[in-house]
Amino acid sequence: MADLRTDRLVLRRWQDSDLEPWAAMNADPAVREHLGDLLTREQSDASVAQFQAEFDQRGYGWWAVQLQATGEFIGFAGLDQVEDGMPFTGVEIGWRLARSAWGQGYATEAALAGLAFGFETLELPEILAVTTATNLRSQAVMRRIGMTRDPADDFDDPTAPEGPLRPNVLYRIARAVRV
């Protein structure tokens, strides 16, 4: 699988040098606010191993994201199969960036690269995005990349405990909209 490049970013396979900054992100309460508990270093490292295995199996997944200009790791973005047990199926797009990378358009830029890969290379008919109802920043990115929400698709995440992480919103974009 080739790297994806944008004007400012490289979306690439994970490297050992990503483990430390990834663990720091997963230990940051602001980064994890809409995701649940903070991760230990072991849990964080295990997530990267899983990302790499999924890439090997499917040829796509969660890419590590780095700045082209400096090579700095800033997070992840990509595509993943919707988890079993959700009230819908398909492929979802997502991103998670270090707090220092917020507010600079990187999530939108990485997501657009992911959409292009999903529609042009994988020829997916539709791509989904999911987040908590309170995650307004991610919902803004979803709208910026052309996704739309039908409130009738909103759902309670069956994997989340009762509380603010349970109500979720679902955004969609069809290949025909992008091509």
Rank of each mutant, 00 (worst) to 15 (best):
T121N: 03
D84Q: 14
A129D: 13
G118F: 00
E120D: 15
G90Q: 11
A129N: 06
R96N: 04
T108A: 11
A129V: 12
W95A: 09
S100Y: 09
G118Q: 05
G90K: 11
W95S: 13
Y106K: 02
G103D: 09
Q104R: 12
W95H: 06
A107D: 04
L128V: 09
L122C: 10
I127L: 15
A113D: 11
L115F: 12
V91P: 05
T89V: 10
W95C: 04
L115G: 08
L97E: 11
E123T: 14
W95I: 05
F119V: 13
A107H: 03
A116I: 01
G114C: 15
W95L: 04
T121G: 01
G90T: 14
I127F: 00
L112P: 00
G105W: 04
V91D: 09
R99A: 06
G85W: 15
L97P: 04
E109Q: 06
T108L: 06
L128W: 00
I93C: 11
L112R: 15
W102V: 02
L115K: 09
A116S: 14
A107M: 03
G90N: 13
E109S: 07
L124D: 00
A107Q: 07
D84P: 11
E120K: 06
E120I: 07
V91I: 15
L97T: 02
R96C: 05
F88N: 09
A113K: 10
W102R: 05
A113F: 05
L112W: 02
A129M: 09
L124F: 00
I127V: 15
A111T: 12
V91W: 04
E109I: 03
F88K: 07
A129K: 11
F88Q: 14
A98R: 13
E123S: 13
L115H: 06
L97N: 07
T121R: 15
I93G: 12
A98W: 08
L128H: 01
G114F: 07
I127W: 00
S100V: 10
T121C: 05
G85P: 10
V91G: 05
I127T: 02
W95F: 13
L115P: 06
S100P: 01
G85Y: 15
Q104W: 01
G114Q: 14
F117Y: 15
Q104K: 12
W95T: 07
A113L: 10
W102N: 07
G103Q: 05
Y106P: 00
E92W: 06
L128D: 02
T89C: 08
L122N: 10
A111Y: 03
G94Q: 07
E92R: 09
A101Q: 05
A98V: 08
W102S: 03
V130C: 13
T121D: 15
E120V: 08
G90E: 14
L112Q: 09
P125I: 08
R99I: 07
W95K: 07
A116C: 09
M86C: 02
E123R: 15
E120G: 03
R99C: 00
T89M: 07
F88R: 15
Y106T: 03
G94K: 10
L97A: 05
I127A: 00
A113E: 13
A98Q: 12
F119I: 12
A98H: 13
T121I: 07
E123W: 00
E120Y: 00
Y106S: 04
M86L: 14
T121K: 11
Y106E: 01
D84K: 14
D84M: 11
R96Y: 03
G94W: 10
E126P: 01
W102A: 02
E120H: 10
